[in-house]
């Protein structure tokens, strides 16, 4: 049984690629309404963690629970339809489609789950309004009818979030949604993620920008070489010797 208030619980999760232990016996949880940050140096296994949780890869070992239900080993689409939305570090828009249709795809799990329901003409005014609401939320409603292939990186990251929100997820996984953005865009994006949390979504995010991770997340989990190095509030992580060493090397703790 999962503890009350836990959205996601990961127990002893491992994923090996041949001899490489990309993720090695990692455990953590995400509480309801929490923003949990997954941080760590390059190659620490953060994205692999995301790919295992979202079903792109099967875990080599370990258990993953979404609330009470065990989801490890399920295919990606089954995990998504159970309420795990995600974005990608390297953005993956449906490039040949309009921005609005990108979001409409995400509405499908709610409205067109059965085969018969998915056959009639889609995109009635109710669909459009719903999809527009998600675009408005992320602030790109003005681009709705344009092609998604011409968006800037910042807007593509917003589109991916809108698309994931359209699934009405219980848990939102954001994979480096801040990377490659300007300072102004980062501020807007932080505001957006805070708003999303206030609307009741739980968020698990990967972030490289320490300042963003520290100010946005309630708790942080630090990975290094596939293992969990530390876990705690941003304040605890900031002063944790092992974390500083992993990031900056020995003798750097004085600067933290």
């Amino acid at each position: 049984m999962a503890e009350k208030g836990m959205i996601l619980r990961v127990e002893g999760m491992s994923r090996y690629f041949g001899g490489l232990k990309a993720v090695d016996d990692v455990s953590f949880h995400v509480s309801r309404g929490e923003i949990l940050g997954l941080i760590g140096p390059n190659g620490a296994g953060k994205t692999t963690c995301f790919n295992v949780i979202s079903g792109v890869y099967r875990p080599t070992a370990g258990k993953i629970f979404l609330e009470e239900e065990r989801i490890d080993g399920l295919p990606a689409h089954a995990i998504a339809s159970r309420g795990v939305g995600r974005t990608f570090q390297i953005v993956r828009p449906f490039a040949g489609m309009t921005v609005l249709n990108n979001v409409m795809v995400g509405l499908g799990m709610q409205r067109y789950s059965s085969f018969l329901k998915s056959c009639p003409v889609f995109g009635d005014s109710q669909d459009r309004e719903e999809a527009m609401a998600f675009l408005r939320e992320v602030g790109i409603e003005g681009l709705a009818d344009g092609s998604s292939s011409v968006l800037s990186l910042g807007n593509l990251r917003r589109l991916e979030i809108a698309r994931a929100l359209a699934l009405r997820p219980r848990l939102l996984l954001l994979d480096e949604s801040f990377s490659g953005l300007s300072e102004e865009e980062i501020q807007q994006m932080m505001e957006l993620v805070r708003n999303i949390r206030e609307r009741g979504f739980s968020v698990l995010l990967i972030e490289h920008n320490m300042r963003v991770a520290m100010s946005l997340c309630h708790r942080l989990v630090v990975l290094d070489h596939g293992k969990k190095l530390a876990e705690g509030s941003p304040g605890e992580i900031r002063t944790d010797e092992r974390v500083i060493e992993a990031y900056l090397g020995r003798g750097a703790s004085a600067h933290a």
Binding site: H77, F88, G96
Partner: peptide, 13 residues
């Protein structure tokens, strides 16, 4: 067709 992985993340089998 456009993005199989992303489609999977949208619940599309």
């Amino acid at each position: 067709r456009e993005e199989e992985t992303a489609a999977g993340a949208m619940g599309i089998s």
